[in-house]
Structures are given as structure tokens and as C-alpha cells.
Amino acid sequence: MAERHPALIEQVREAFPYGPPQHRALDSLRQEIAHGVVEPLAPGSPDRELWLARGREHFGRSWFDAPFLWSESYFYRRLLGAVGYFDEGPWQGVDPFAPFKRAELRGGTVEEELRALDDLADVPAADRATALLQASLWGNRADLGFRGPAGESGPGEAAPGEAAPGLVADDSAMLWSLLPAGSGATVAVVADNTGRELIPDLVLVDHLLRHGHADRVVLHVKPGPYYVSDAMTADVVDCLRRMREAPGEAGSIGGRVWDAMGTGRLDVRTHAFFCAPFPYERMPDDLRAELGAATLTILKGDLNYRRLVGDRRWPATTSFAGCTAYFPGAVAALRTLKSDVVVGLDERTLEGLERSGRAWRTSGTHALIQVRPRTGADR
């Protein structure tokens, strides 16, 4: 809040030729965060009453006193307001993070990763499934919201020459056991970042559909710009276009996923709750019913993990199944660690991590796959 968010304000300012009103609003937001108190949305804002209800107790207090999940979410709402995203005028609906997302898609790293798919074309299906699940998991390193103040690699990037990072929990076998080929499953995927993370997600979706692990996939994305690189429908389309333009296996996969959207086997949806400052335990009834109807819900990324288990200082050996007992069906978390929150570790693993002396909880060098199958209590 003291360094990354003010730096992001400046990056957004430099990314567009905004006019004086936007510059004044950005300056005001930066000053408010550093030295002022949390101000409510201006009268006339379409969601003013909604945000007052979401956190009335935080207004008039320091930004640093609010729960971080709440203050992060409200920061992004205020940033969108500052640049005129919701107002009638030339900047209405213009994603302030689009230049960062598009630059990543045009980058050489994405080019290399698309070419690498050719190496998997003839790999046996089981081995390919393992590789694609790992790619979807580790793609979260590309989170643009975790860049440092000067634009350098933040905790989401591994240091040069660093040893290969490891899994602190791996329930991948259980994940695949819930999706046997030919089972007619419906899989919900709650996306996190676009670009280098969403492309592997789409490749995994193609594998699920093509090899019968799912008859249908529902991809849930954000309804508006959020956390810099979080995926919206427009980002899904941009990623698919980038894949279809590529030669070889990447182009074939992009074409199949594009067609799957056309036939309804891949359905892209969104919900306002995905930008709410609350844990999934408070999800509304319509979203609860939708996710509960899925054979498995796969939640991607660090923020979704914090919202899934609760953004609290849990002991790391706290039961993952216990923290997610409220969830309306089988759920899997694919997450690269970028925050202190973690549960479900066994004592031996935790002791080894703590002895390592590394910032394993926040550096993006460790990851986890955790699964809680459907229980009799799920409805």
C-alpha cells in the first residue's frame, strides 16, 4: 500500500494521455493513501451505496488500518474512478491496464512458450496432462500486479540462476481422479491473470475437453479491470487471437478453444462478486448454486486462494478441507505463493520450509495444488 500502489498510479498515469481532471484525481488518490483517510465514492457514483455497505466502518480511517483484502479491492475501484472508467466521456470503459497486458502478449516470453507447445504434441495424454497442469499452476508468476516500484521483477519472478521452485502441497492425483475421461463432467475455472497465465489455462481447458475429462468448461473472469492483470472477457479474446496467430500446436489449440466457445462447450461468464472485497464464504446464492453444480471448481492464483481459505494468519498446518468446508462442491486451488496465507501443509514440510531461511510464502518460488472433494454436506 505504501510502495506498490502509488507506483501503479504513476504507471497508469504514464500509460495514457489523460487530461487534467484525471491527473488531479490520480494525485488526490495518491495523497489520500499516503497521508489521508479512506474517502467514500463521490455522490452520484453508481455503486456508492454498495461500497458504503461493504465497508462503512473503514471510511474516515487510514488506508493502512483496513483489512488488506478490502483496501486492495477498494483501491482498484477508486483508481478506475480516477481515470473516468465509469463516467460518460472519452475514457469510459477504457481499461487502464490494457497497455501492460498487451505488451506481455507481444513479448518474447509468450512467443517461446507458444512454440514450446510443439514439444507436447506427441507426448502421451497422461504425461501431457501433468505438464499442462504444472504450466497452468506456474503461469501465475507473470502477475503484473506484483512488479516493484521501479518496474523491476517483484516477488512473482524467480531470481536468475535460482534452483527450480517446488510444490509445498500436491493433490494433483486427486484432481485427476475427480475428472476421469468420459465422466461427462462440468468444470468451473475461476481465472486469475491474463497473458502468460491465461494462455496455459486455455491450453489446459483444451486438454480437458479434447480428452474427455470434461464435457463442458465454464471460465469465470472479472467483470472489469482489477489487480492490473486479472482477466476479463476482452483478455480471453486477446489471448485466443494471439494463440490462433501462432504456427504449429499453439495455433491448433487456439482454434479449438475458439470453436469450443462457439459451440458452448466453453462458456465464459462473470459475476460482480469476483471484484468484491470478501472471501468466498460470503458468495451470493446465485454464484453458490452455479459453482455447486460443477463437478469441480478450479480456483487460480494467490488472490483466489486468500478469498477461498480466508485472508487470516492461519497456522500453516490448519486443515485445507476444514477452511473450505463451506464451499458448495469439490474445489481445487492452483496457486503460486505470493502472500503469507497458507494452510494444509504437513508438519514435516513446514519445518523444512522454515529452516530454509527463504521467504517461501511470498517470493513466488513455491506453489501448491490443494483439492477438497465433494462431501455429503455439499449442496
Rank of each mutant, 00 (worst) to 15 (best):
129 A>R: 12
109 T>E: 10
21 P>C: 01
39 E>P: 10
187 V>K: 02
214 A>V: 05
151 G>H: 15
97 F>R: 12
58 H>E: 08
170 D>Q: 01
17 P>Y: 05
26 L>C: 07
235 D>T: 00
250 A>D: 06
308 L>M: 06
318 T>A: 13
22 Q>W: 02
113 E>D: 13
32 E>I: 09
355 R>W: 13
238 D>V: 04
319 S>Y: 07
149 P>S: 10
374 R>Q: 11
371 V>P: 09
223 P>K: 05
139 G>D: 02
8 L>T: 14
249 E>D: 09
9 I>Q: 07
251 G>W: 07
190 V>H: 02
239 C>H: 01
288 R>V: 04
41 L>M: 13
247 P>T: 14
276 A>N: 11
306 R>S: 05
304 N>E: 01
291 L>I: 04
208 L>I: 01
354 E>Y: 12
305 Y>K: 03
84 G>A: 03
67 P>K: 11
299 L>N: 08
56 R>F: 12
273 F>A: 01
246 A>N: 04
356 S>C: 05
356 S>D: 07
364 G>E: 07
265 R>M: 00
112 E>Q: 12
157 E>D: 15
232 M>D: 00
82 A>K: 03
223 P>L: 03
124 P>H: 06
111 E>H: 14
240 L>Q: 02
343 V>S: 05
55 G>A: 14
359 A>G: 11
141 R>Y: 06
129 A>E: 10
272 A>L: 11
165 P>Y: 03
11 Q>W: 14
244 R>M: 08
228 V>A: 00
291 L>C: 01
164 A>E: 15
326 Y>H: 06
227 Y>W: 12
251 G>Q: 11
342 V>R: 02
204 L>D: 00
281 E>N: 06
10 E>F: 06
144 L>G: 02
329 G>D: 03
213 H>Q: 05
